[in-house]
Simulated scan of single mutants.
Amino acid sequence: MSEAAVETQSPKTQKKAKKPAKPEAAIPRGQPKSNRPWKTPKQKFSKIKKTVNRLSFEKKTALRDELRYIKEKSKEIKVQRKEAAVQKHQRRVENAERRLANERRSEVVQVIKNPAKLKRMKKKQMRMIEKRDISQVKVV
């Protein structure tokens, strides 16, 4: 009986079977304008499925506390590093000053009272001469 019913219907009245919809990624695409064929086609934000797994209040507070603790620790570490750098710089400056003072103290000084000697000196000897304030330096 069913065969007869199918035969009596005309091809126009028969319902066509719907094809399953293809996802956009399966459609072959041509070369995009940007010449980046590895880029995937973008999806509308409204079509993207979003997760709604929200954290409980206790977990949120625990996370906040942990973040606050981490920030405080990192601040402390930064402050310690800065202090160490300042101390190192200060020590370096003090050492340089002490070294200079020691050099000045250990120098053998000879006062040139006759300025005519300077005219007779050679260039190399002139380079060796340095001016000092005699009030601070002990003359040997």
Rank of each mutant, 00 (worst) to 15 (best):
A4E: 04
R36I: 08
K113D: 04
A101L: 09
R99L: 13
V93G: 00
E76D: 15
K42N: 03
K59M: 14
K15T: 07
V111G: 01
V140W: 06
M126I: 10
E76F: 00
P11K: 12
N95D: 14
V86L: 11
A21R: 15
V108I: 12
K18T: 08
K78N: 15
M126V: 08
K50S: 06
K44Y: 04
L55W: 04
I77G: 00
K124Q: 11
Q43M: 08
R120H: 04
L63A: 11
S74R: 15
W38I: 05
S46Y: 02
V137A: 11
R54Y: 13
A62H: 02
I27R: 04
Q80R: 14
R91Y: 08
V109Q: 05
N114H: 02
E58P: 01
R29N: 06
A84D: 13
N95F: 11
K19F: 02
D133Q: 07
L100R: 09
K113R: 09
S74T: 12
R91V: 06
A26I: 00
S46A: 07
E7K: 05
K42E: 07
K71T: 03
A101V: 08
K117C: 04
K59A: 14
R120C: 05
R132K: 12
I134K: 00
L118S: 02
R64I: 03
K42T: 02
S34N: 15
V6D: 08
N53Q: 09
A62F: 02
A85K: 10
A84Q: 13
E7M: 07
K75Q: 14
V111N: 03
E103K: 15
K33M: 13
S2V: 10
K78L: 14
A84E: 14
V109M: 08
M121F: 02
I129R: 12
L118W: 01
P11C: 01
R54T: 14
R105H: 05
Q125I: 00
E130I: 02
V6E: 10
K75E: 15
A116Y: 00
S135I: 05
P20K: 09
Y69F: 10
P23N: 12
V52M: 10
A96P: 00
R98L: 15
I27Y: 03
S2L: 13
R132W: 05
Q136D: 10
E72C: 01
R64K: 13
I134G: 00
M126Y: 03
S2A: 12
R99P: 00
I70T: 07
E66A: 08
I27P: 00
R127M: 12
R104Y: 03
V139W: 03
K131L: 14
T51R: 14
I129H: 11
P28D: 06
G30M: 07
Q136I: 06
N114K: 01
K49W: 08
T40A: 15
K33R: 10
A85D: 15
A84N: 12
P23G: 07
K19V: 01
L118Q: 02
R68K: 05
K16Q: 09
K138P: 02
L67Q: 09
K60H: 06
K50M: 10
W38Y: 10
I112K: 05
Q9L: 14
K123D: 13
M128C: 04
V111A: 09
